[in-house]
Design a protein around this nucleic acid. Structure first.
Lengths: 156, 156
DNA sequence: TGCAAATCATCTGCTGTCAAACGATCGGCG
DNA sequence: CGCCGATCGTTTGACAGCAGATGATTTGCA
């Protein structure tokens, strides 16, 4: 067996690779946790949270949205979306106007300041991706993207 | 009915696919969240938490371990490992004996009851994996496993 | 030997996430 | 019109994950 009677044995059995090979779900979660941490760190340095960045990006891409729509499309819980929009509004990066057709919902709108902030934050994303996924070649990243797309139920 | 062609039923912009294609990190995190939820649900039905299952599995595979080693190899925070072992011990699935060579650490040992419980839980794992990763073919699952392995820094 | 530093398990506090409940508002139907 | 159910945003409470501090113990070094 691999059991060693010595305690100070340097070359450890390293059980983790075996686990990752057997349990695809665990491998996925562990990799995600590492990436999420890197993203949070990066976002912290940038001064704009990951969720806030995504919201600005979507608003810039598709125009004013309700928080509900933002939640659904960005896969962020709606109760979390509240504080994200609170912060963005407080920094005047978005405006919250009531939708006159349905006064329950907001029409969250990106401001000019928001667009500038977004452009600024966007510049550092490619380097972050490059850095985080460095172990993978560009081809492999495409593979991963395709596989995750299928897993997420995205019709291609 | 999906055939409702009413006013508000314009084919939704569905921004998410675009996001997932551009931001590999987000795609990874969203897929992971979905899988993690499925795993938690499955584990809940099985009555044995995911972490507890992993601990039993590792103990069965490599023999008695300290909580430290379990934490490192399973990528579970050591303060979380405390409560996992607490629960397992309370159900008599593991024993915590002090390591006589180093009385700071435990020698966490799986019991016969633990082995039975593990065997029981193991039987439902393949079906769970099959179900969760159904959108992927076996070949694609292997691809994904390889890619995640590289991302996790596992030497092949 | 004796003392400082490191290590293991544990505890505490903070943050982020999610479920459930709540007011406000809309739509439908008599 | 007036009521009922559904929806949007928000608040609250519970819970996991993680950083940092603590006590017990071991190890390194003079």
């Amino acid at each position: 067996m691999a059991t060693t009677t010595k305690t100070a044995d340097r070359a450890r059995p390293t059980y983790f690779p075996r686990l990752a090979a057997e349990r695809l779900d665990i491998a996925l979660c562990r990799a995600s946790a590492a990436v999420a941490r890197a993203a949070d760190t990066h976002a912290g340095e940038e001064g704009l949270g990951v969720g806030q960045h995504l919201v600005l990006q979507m608003l810039d891409a598709v125009g004013p949205c309700s928080q509900q729509t933002l939640s659904e499309e960005l896969r962020i819980d709606r109760s979390v979306m509240v504080s994200i929009c609170d912060d963005l509004e407080q920094e005047s990066l978005v405006r919250r106007e009531r939708n006159p057709r349905d006064r329950r919902s907001y029409a969250v709108t990106i401001t000019d300041a928001g667009r500038r902030r977004l452009a600024e934050a966007q510049t550092s994303i490619p380097a972050f991706i490059e850095d985080t996924f460095q172990p993978l070649t560009p081809d492999e990243r495409d593979q991963l993207s395709t596989l995750l797309g299928k897993l997420l139920g995205i019709a291609t």
